[in-house]
Design a protein around this nucleic acid. Structure first.
Length: 240
DNA sequence: AAGCAAGGCAACCGCTTTGCA
DNA sequence: ATGCAAAGCGGTTGCCTTGCT
């Protein structure tokens, strides 16, 4: 027995959204907020599936979206975060206010990839393409031993102290992200705003070079890693 | 002006994760 | 502990626009 479809495809519109549909969705969410996406279309008078409504709202209609071209600073931040996190678009988007994961993903695939290739950097590994060091399709793989200064030198584009982020013995997540964006205050973001599923990515980042999130020896819910990132550790709290 | 290719991006698909009974 | 529904996510597709020949 398979999963029931999210919507009755025969009775839903597909393809590009019309202005009228946009207005219906905006008006409904303004009046009722983001509630149950599955029941929203019917309640709002839309012939769309809930998934489609959610996507349209998050990626296009949300009032806090920035739109417009990415700045050079945003470019560099995306590159740095991608070097740390890989294709965790939603986590990366979380560090760029007003930008969506879909937008960043598209921007990465159409602009930044090319930019990195132009610099002689493999977009997947963030390592120079010459010399066969790059391994297509693999996420940034930390070395098993401490990253040498020479290794750091090989990755000028990723303006991070890789010896810290990849071979650290125990940096805090805020240190990792401070390295990615020294201007950011990693302690100021509200923990409640972090979707729980981001925890794994943060955990993964936190454990880069040591162990994967799957083999983390910590028995706590991974969300504590998010707490560690978004809020400084207090005395006596769990540490690795 | 027409045809074609490439680029850009909105939207969809299918799988995973989460929350709850 | 388990199963299911809902939400979230990343990869992919497809259409529209732009630039080139």
């Amino acid at each position: 027995m398979g999963r029931s479809p999210c919507c009755e495809k025969a009775h839903t519109n597909r393809g590009a959204w019309t202005k009228e549909e946009d207005q219906l969705l905006i008006a409904y969410i303004k009046a009722h907020g983001e509630g149950c996406w599955r029941s929203l279309p019917r309640a709002a008078g839309l012939l769309r599936c809930g998934k489609s409504c959610r996507l349209r709202w998050i990626n296009y209609l949300r009032p806090d979206l920035k739109r417009g071209n990415f700045t050079e600073e945003e470019d560099e931040l995306i590159i740095k975060l991608h070097g740390l996190l890989g294709n965790k678009w939603s986590v990366i988007a979380g560090q760029l206010p007003g930008r969506t994961d879909n937008e960043i993903k598209n921007y990465w695939n159409t602009h930044i990839k090319r930019k990195l290739v132009g610099r002689g950097i493999d977009p997947q590994t963030h390592l120079p393409v010459h010399g066969g060091a790059a391994t297509p399709g693999k996420a940034l793989k930390p070395p098993s031993s401490a990253t040498s200064p020479a290794e750091k030198e090989r990755c000028p584009d990723l303006n991070l102290d890789l010896s810290m982020s990849l071979s650290f013995s125990s940096p805090t997540p805020s240190e990792v992200f401070a390295a990615a964006d020294p201007a950011a205050d990693a302690t100021s973001s509200p923990t409640s705003a972090v979707p729980p599923r981001h925890a794994r990515a943060i955990c993964l980042c936190y454990h880069l070079g040591l162990q994967s999130s799957e083999t983390c020896s910590c028995q706590e819910n991974p969300s504590h890693h998010v707490l560690r990132y978004y809020r400084p550790l207090e005395e006596g709290q769990h540490t690795h």
